[in-house]
Nucleic acid binder design. Sequence first.
DNA 1: ACGTTAGCCGAAACCCATTTCGAAAAAAAG
DNA 2: CTTTTTTTCGAAATGGGTTTCGGCTAACGT
Lengths: 335, 335
Amino acid sequence: MITIYDIARVTGYSPTTVSKVFNNYSDVSAKTRGKILDTAKEMGYMPNSHARTLMTKKSWTIGILFNESSGVGIRHPFFGGVLDSVKKTAEAEGYDLMFISDNIGGKTASYLEHCRFRSVDGVIVMLADRGDEGLQNLLKSDIPCVLLDFDDERPGCVSSDSIDGCYLALKHLHDLGHRRIAHISGGGDTFVGQQRRLGYEQGLRRLGLAADERLIVPGGPFFSVEGGRQAMLELLDLPQPPTAVLAAGDNLALGAIRALEERNLEAPRDMSIVGFDDIEAASLVRPALTTIRQDVGHMGARAARMLIGAIESEDMPPAAVLPVELIVRESCRRL
Amino acid sequence: MITIYDIARVTGYSPTTVSKVFNNYSDVSAKTRGKILDTAKEMGYMPNSHARTLMTKKSWTIGILFNESSGVGIRHPFFGGVLDSVKKTAEAEGYDLMFISDNIGGKTASYLEHCRFRSVDGVIVMLADRGDEGLQNLLKSDIPCVLLDFDDERPGCVSSDSIDGCYLALKHLHDLGHRRIAHISGGGDTFVGQQRRLGYEQGLRRLGLAADERLIVPGGPFFSVEGGRQAMLELLDLPQPPTAVLAAGDNLALGAIRALEERNLEAPRDMSIVGFDDIEAASLVRPALTTIRQDVGHMGARAARMLIGAIESEDMPPAAVLPVELIVRESCRRL
DNA sequence: ACGTTAGCCGAAACCCATTTCGAAAAAAAG
DNA sequence: CTTTTTTTCGAAATGGGTTTCGGCTAACGT
């Protein structure tokens, strides 16, 4: 490996001067600069990030944290999209991404310890288990953290506008003549689960529709197809079933459609369904799912920019709630 | 930040001794060990990975490389699954994951330079563009690299058994009475695209079926739904269309089904379809897709273990070709 | 001709750990 | 009670950079 000492030796200057060249110090003459730069390129010099970090306390590394306890993890298509845009945005600003886990060298460690060990400049929490003590300790630390779908007021949180999304969905159904609209809710302990349920309730009120407790059925903690199936079955067994369903996630909606098929019913003929997320499968399925699209690309980019802002200004920007969009496809019909 | 010097000061021992404790040197008495360990825990000591790496030349970091030029990237569900298992396996062995990009500090750099800059111990190339010169230079370097779906003979390559997968699919169709089976092929410059086409051709021969050049239609470079749709349309326009299609990817298969719908045809009634990959949507779609499942979890774990083996033994294990599995669902019928 | 000033450059300290090797102390051998 | 061996410890060098601060030279002003 070529070091600044090698370049110093070859050019006849001191390591100090070589270092200064790469750090754009002004007290180096143009001639010296040129000679050092030339030989550096010639010798294939590449700085050593570890040595640099050791000195500057800045690693140019952003930690990516998945609180895996929920068991969902990176697999969910939502995260692939977010991660992709986080990566692109961060890289453009000179930061690299590293996964933060709960162990170091194969031995259990806290997230905070891991962050300190690797001296990451900040962390993006993509999937947060609100009850996790390790996560809470990290948030209490001085390490800047941006969280996805964790809160809509706490500084450093980025979320999609679930409230508005639910309203858009309900409005759409209402416009189609539906008045009895059920909700298959997501995991009650997740922020989006809570938020979408809240959005459903507020949306009903705003549209002047009566609320009916029995029309809210939990679809299990994991936003899974199977959970949606079960919930739809319950709804169909109601004395007075709904004519439409707003599911808290596309997988739940897909499960609901599955349940309909089992009962020899069909969407949208017998039941209108709206999902949430717009995962890839939503447009592939028949009937194609009408759903609320989260802009994952925007979300990742925003999270990355927020974090970098916090890292470089020592001040965490306020929470961002991103707009969502109604994607009308085939799973709803006019009554 | 607490350093070994702080602990040395407090305990009265030298930094050397403190370091030795954490590195399990035998020349430290049990008493000393205990005292140092205690105060370390008390003070919340956490080693600094950068200082350590600087000295030992080992970063305990594995680079993850997506050759994004193809435009697919992390978004594809396949990678989410692989990445997940790579992460779990690597972490269990004490390695962390960092993404390798083609820039450093916001300025363009080669993959190799990035790897040296961060001194990663090895790299897993998840999506390789065979023509990329930067990638080739990385492979020529002394940094251990494991590649997914890149080759099936080169040491350090992990791939699913496309040949066998195609045979399984063809055999299934053959068993159902199909004799005229088409192939919608994937990007010709990708390894899996080539391999699956080869598997199709060999499979036909093995089953004693006649090959017909016109039955092989390229589905475009990106394994996309739209590409599959176009290809199916072409097949339908053939004077003598096939009765079944083996698509080189599930998305292609899904696109093919879409094309059938447009012509008021239906799978499996009018055309049997087999996909490849078993992405999430495959089981969600109607008709649910009969497909060849790649074990992404196994693939990631294998890749990680192979790389770590190479890192720690200086010797790259031979290529691994992983078995695949036929998943029979609803998209094929008996003729 | 002399004091100022600005422009360039480098010595040395520092960041935090690892590792070698020698020395001191303690234990074992004689 | 020496001598030898074993334990236990630490000084110092090392890794590759950054940053402060002081020194030297050349140009400038008068």
